[in-house]
């Protein structure tokens, strides 16, 4: 059984725009699935559907074989503890009025009693926050800081630390590096790659940056205008039978 199955999902916005048309794919355990496509093709909408903060019209999303749609927030809780997200813009992903430690504690305060941590251990809040910050290469002293005292790359590391804090099975990475400078981009991607191996997490890595996706993922799907046009193992990226749109994307990065 796959970790996550997305089957025949359709989504129409209130203004009548069909943003997703018959989307199908699955994510295996401990695997990174890359999702590539241009801006506005429905990548982030898809992420919101998987994260259950938006509803869809047709189809189903299954986590470990259990359908998620039409569930009350209470019944979604066992699912929410297994899925986290790192969003595109670290500047707005942390509450500017809260210290880093308070932002980091959100997932644990919600799900701490229901999860069995393997990598981290919770003895005290300060100790736990210290472990989280260290795991993303930040000094423990950052716990007391406010988000505006950190650089973009550092903030993104904090949001990554928040996402891994309850050791979820799946993390949705919605363009996690695109708003960072080139150096921070490389560092964040390297960090994410390392964490996946240590913590045995699956990723859905959403990006328009084909080389980054190729670097991170095992399997790649290509989306255009709300439709998945191509799907392949990353080694087959340069095969001649790729879809014309995939070839177009490849040529842009050459």
């Amino acid at each position: 059984m796959s970790l996550l199955d997305v089957r025949n999902v359709h989504k129409t916005y209130a203004n009548g725009i069909k943003i997703l048309k018959d989307v199908n794919f699955s994510i295996e355990r401990k695997e990174c699935l890359g999702l590539v496509g241009e801006s506005g093709c429905g990548k982030s909408t898809l992420a919101r559907l998987i994260l259950q903060i938006d509803s869809f019209d047709q189809g189903s999303i299954l986590f470990e074989g259990n359908a998620l749609q039409n569930k009350s927030e209470r019944r979604l809780k066992p699912y929410r503890k297994n899925i986290q997200a790192v969003l595109q813009n670290p500047a707005t992903a942390l509450n500017p009025k809260l210290r880093i430690k308070d932002s980091l504690m959100d997932p644990y305060l919600q799900f701490g009693s229901q999860v069995n941590l393997k990598h981290f251990t919770y003895t005290s809040e300060a100790n736990f926050i210290g472990q989280l910050l260290e795991s993303v290469g930040l000094p423990k002293s950052f716990a007391e800081r406010y988000p505006h005292e950190l650089s973009g790359g550092q903030k993104q590391r904090v949001t990554i630390a928040r996402a891994i804090s309850i050791e979820p099975a799946l993390i949705i990475l919605d363009e996690p590096a695109s708003s960072l400078d080139v150096l921070s981009q490389a560092e964040v991607l390297k960090l994410l790659g390392g964490l996946r191996e240590t913590l045995d997490i699956s990723y859905l890595f959403i990006s328009h940056d084909l080389p980054a996706v190729q670097e991170m993922s095992h399997q790649i799907i290509v989306m255009k205008g709300g439709v998945i046009v191509d799907s392949f193992e990353k080694e087959q990226l340069f095969c001649s039978d790729r879809h014309s749109y995939t070839k177009e994307l490849i040529s842009m990065f050459e």
């Binding site: 929410r80 986290q84 997200a85 969003l87 707005t92 992903a93 009025k97 809260l98 959100d106």
Partner: peptide
């Protein structure tokens, strides 16, 4: 803002979001 989205992903109730995330903005 994204931090409220993340709080929703973490299953915080409307009241929880209000209390932890929005109240500090309001009080000032």
């Amino acid at each position: 803002k994204d931090y409220v989205t993340v709080a929703k992903i973490n299953g915080l109730s409307s009241f929880g979001i209000m209390r932890k995330h929005l109240f500090p903005h309001l009080i000032g």
